[in-house]
Every structure is written in C-alpha cells, then in structure tokens.
Amino acid sequence: MTETIDHTDLSPLRLFGTSPGNYSLILSDNHFGEATDLFEAVGQEGGGYSWDAVAHTAVRIHAPELADRIGGFDPEAGMMCVYGEDEAALRELGLLLSSAFHDRAKLAALIEATDPGDWD
C-alpha cells in the first residue's frame, strides 16, 4: 500500500511513500493541460516526457546538489515520475516544480532553458 505524504505546498504534484524508505514524486496528466501552450511554443507536447525534461532542467539550474540524491526519473506519456530513497530531495524538487507550475513565467524560463537533448 502506498503512503501519501501531506505536502499541500507541492500541489499539483504528489509525493508518495511507495514502500519503506522509497518515494515517488508524481505529476499526472490531469494537470498537463494547464501548461500545454507553453510546451507547444517550443514544439513539445507537454506530457510526462516533457515535464521530465523540465524536471531535469530544474535540477541542473536550480538545485544541482539534488542530482546525486535523486534515485531516477521514470516518465510515461501520462505522468512524470521521479523516485528515490531521499524524501527531502524529492520534496525539494517538488517545490521547484510546483512553483514553476503556478508561475507561467518561471515555467516558460525552464522550458526555454531545457537542453534539446533532454526532450524525449
């Protein structure tokens, strides 16, 4: 059974305890539509793979110290997923992404800063 961690400041992302000592940070497709236009402006669809690229960019630009603390990235078309054993690292990334999600200028800046090779 998964454990939902109550971090309302991460909205619309969700942080789950998936098993003892393992966590997943998720952004599901029911929220993608709110920013599709920003992704489409750079020729991307705005789905899980696009948000994965933005998550990589957020780490690279704003929190490079998280790179070694995050277990991995496992996006699907319908969701962005970041996982690992370090709940605090995932929460910090969640805060960065939540802030960008709610501030179109921040999100647009992350999208523009994404390396072409990161788009999947």
Rank of each mutant, 00 (worst) to 15 (best):
A58G: 06
L13H: 09
W119T: 08
V82L: 10
E87W: 07
L38M: 04
H7Y: 15
A113I: 06
M1N: 12
L95C: 10
A53E: 02
I5C: 12
R104I: 11
G46K: 05
H31K: 10
L110K: 08
T57N: 05
M1Q: 13
G33R: 13
M1R: 11
H62V: 06
D37N: 14
T4E: 15
G72A: 07
N30A: 12
G94R: 04
H7Q: 14
Q44P: 04
L110Y: 12
A67I: 08
T57S: 06
R69D: 04
D37A: 14
D103C: 01
W51P: 05
G43Q: 14
G78Y: 14
H102C: 03
L107K: 05
R104L: 09
D68W: 14
R69Y: 02
P20R: 12
H62I: 08
Y49W: 12
C81S: 14
G43K: 14
E65M: 08
E76S: 13
E112P: 02
A63D: 09
A108R: 15
S24C: 10
P64I: 04
H62K: 14
E112H: 07
E45S: 10
A55S: 14
A109Y: 13
D120Y: 11
D68H: 15
G21W: 00
P116V: 09
A35Y: 08
G71H: 09
E40D: 11
G72W: 11
V59W: 07
S98F: 00
M80D: 06
L97T: 00
L97V: 03
I70D: 00
D6H: 15
E85D: 04
S50C: 09
A100R: 01
A108I: 12
F39T: 05
T2I: 15
P116H: 06
L96C: 08
P12A: 00
V82R: 10
A88K: 15
P12C: 07
E85R: 05
D52H: 10
I111C: 04
F32T: 06
L66S: 03
F101P: 00
L107I: 02
L25N: 00
V59C: 04
A105T: 11
I61W: 10
G47C: 05
A63I: 09
S99L: 10
L27E: 00
E65T: 08
A88F: 09
D74Q: 14
S98R: 02
S99W: 12
T36A: 12
A55C: 12
S98P: 00
R91E: 15
P64F: 01
T57A: 07
L96K: 02
D52K: 11
E3M: 09
I5W: 10
D103A: 01
I5Y: 11
T8F: 12
G33L: 08
L15W: 05
D86C: 05
L27C: 02
L110T: 08
T8C: 13
G21K: 02
F73N: 03
R91D: 11
E65V: 06
H31A: 07
L107A: 01
A67R: 15
G72C: 08
I61R: 12
L66R: 03
D120G: 13
F39K: 04
C81E: 13
F101N: 00
H62R: 15
L110N: 00
S28I: 01
T57E: 12
V82W: 06
A100W: 00
W119I: 03
T114I: 01
L97D: 04
L110V: 11
A55I: 07
A58Q: 08
M79G: 15
